[in-house]
């Protein structure tokens, strides 16, 4: 087999970009070049300068500071949405795969139905019934992820349910809860962890899209998607304003995808 120099490069590049993202987000909580919410109308639409490396927006707010703080929004929504989706999906998957029978059948149809609701669609519905906001986008994105987690968990449970070590534990008198928590669930973790890693960049893209549509993070809070929505109104006058937030999204997603690919290659050499 030939050596593949790009394999570790993928991982290293992904890790570097992801570290940059996390450091930026953490740093923005204690320090930003300017206050991301402070308006200064006199200084609106400044080009890049030493004081404002990425320029200022239509209210004179510092774009760099807003992008830095926007990283916090992206990470928070991403982590919570993937967490919600994983929790709901794993719960359904355990119930479905462990019990089987008509309940399994019904839950799988429910999962098929949930698959008909991409994040945008649930966000539309929730925004109409409640009010658009960051909570709506977290729940809507989480719902969109639930089916994948449910299917993976169910498949592992179906496979592991009949294995010797599970049958042995049951024969020794282990109850359902102990069998699930101690014996089966830990063995289903690797594919679930990979699923969570690959879901995270998708969640960040979805958050940006929902904020862009006005269904997610609301002004004046900085979100990359929201910044692009604002930038669109001034596209012909200040094109750079639309370039930086979009670049931040693309770089972040690229980094996370590379990290995920690299991780999978390193953990599972068979599929590489």
């Amino acid at each position: 087999m030939r050596r593949r120099p790009l394999r570790h490069l993928t991982f290293a590049l992904g890790a570097a970009i992801t570290t940059l993202l996390v450091v930026t987000a953490a740093l923005s909580l204690v320090y930003t070049p300017s206050d991301p919410l402070a308006m200064a109308i006199a200084w609106r639409f400044q080009g890049p300068s030493a004081a404002h490396p990425f320029g200022t927006d239509q209210y004179g707010r510092d774009v760099l500071s807003r992008i830095m703080r926007g990283a916090v929004t992206s990470i928070a929504v991403g982590v919570i949405a993937v967490g919600l989706g994983a929790a709901a999906g794993i719960f359904i998957g355990v119930l479905s795969g462990y019990t089987g029978g008509w309940l399994d059948e019904a839950l799988m149809r429910l999962i098929d139905a949930v698959q008909g609701f991409p994040a945008i669609l649930s966000a539309l519905l929730f925004s109409a019934v409640f009010a658009p906001g960051v909570a709506v986008s977290m729940v809507a994105i989480g719902i969109a992820f639930a089916p994948a987690f449910a299917r993976l968990t169910r498949a592992s449970f179906l496979e592991l349910r009949e294995r010797e070590f599970v049958v042995a534990a049951r024969a020794l008198g282990a109850g359902d809860r102990r069998l699930i928590a101690r014996h089966i669930l830990p063995n289903t973790l690797p594919p679930l962890v990979i699923q969570a890693t690959t879901s995270f960049p998708v969640a960040i893209l979805a958050e940006a899209a929902l904020a862009y549509l006005g269904l997610g993070t609301q002004p004046p809070n900085p979100s990359w998607g929201l910044m692009l929505k604002e930038a669109q109104n001034f596209l012909s006058l200040h094109p750079l304003f639309a370039v930086f937030p979009g670049g931040a999204i693309a770089l972040t997603v690229l980094g996370l995808n590379l990290l995920g690919d690299g991780l999978r290659d390193l953990l599972d050499p068979k599929t590489a």
């Binding site: 940006a208 899209a209 998607g225 669109q232 596209l235 094109p239 639309a242 999204i249 693309a250 997603v253």
Partner: peptide, 22 residues
């Protein structure tokens, strides 16, 4: 393909408008 996966569709739309119309 890695770059394509990283670019959000609405940003791609904005960039296309910027290039082809503006």
């Amino acid at each position: 393909s890695q770059i394509g996966i990283a670019i959000p569709s609405f940003w791609a739309g904005l960039l296309l408008i910027l290039l082809f119309s503006v």
